[in-house]
């Protein structure tokens, strides 16, 4: 597979993975908040709501993609000029890119755009979703070490 195409596939796969995982985490956080109010949420209801919330993907995908494009370009420079484990760099970059974006959005809009990230745990879980995306991207593009 040509290098350029490999990066495109890596970016698309990473974006999709992070968006799905992030959406799932966010839904669990929202349900957890409801359960803290003694609201009963059976497993079937939880699953149904989790699947239904994937409806946010059309709005989430472009944002995550932009995060990763910026984050992975910066990572390419870090790998080249600082060195170290390329996969580790991308894992960190994925997490940092997602968390930074959410914090910037909150600073601009003065609200938390994704309810599941209102708590520190929710924010970190979204960062974890970003880290998974970074790992996916690194693995798919691992044979093109000179690239981003």
């Amino acid at each position: 597979m040509p290098n350029f195409l490999r990066h495109i596939v890596g970016l698309v796969t990473a974006t999709l993975t992070t968006s799905v995982v992030g959406s799932v985490f966010s839904t669990q956080s929202v349900i957890s908040s409801l359960q803290s109010l003694d609201v009963d949420v059976p497993l079937a209801t939880r699953l149904s709501m989790t699947v239904g919330d994937l409806a946010i993907l059309p709005s989430l995908l472009p944002i995550v993609a932009m995060c990763f494009i910026v984050g992975f370009i910066v990572t390419a420079f870090c790998v080249r000029y600082i060195g170290g484990n390329r996969t580790a760099w991308h894992i960190v970059a994925g997490a940092v890119a997602l968390i930074t974006t959410l914090l910037i959005v909150k600073a601009v809009l003065l609200i938390t755009a994704i309810a599941g990230t209102r708590s520190l745990l929710g924010l970190l879980s979204f960062g974890f979703a970003g880290a998974i995306g970074g790992w996916v991207y690194a693995k798919i593009t691992t044979q093109t070490s000179a690239g981003i």
Partner: peptide
């Protein structure tokens, strides 16, 4: 936010109820 006909601005559920 336990019951509502609305959804979050990003389209996600506020609640299943």
């Amino acid at each position: 936010p336990v019951i509502t006909q609305g959804r979050d601005y990003n389209g996600a559920s506020v609640t299943p109820y």
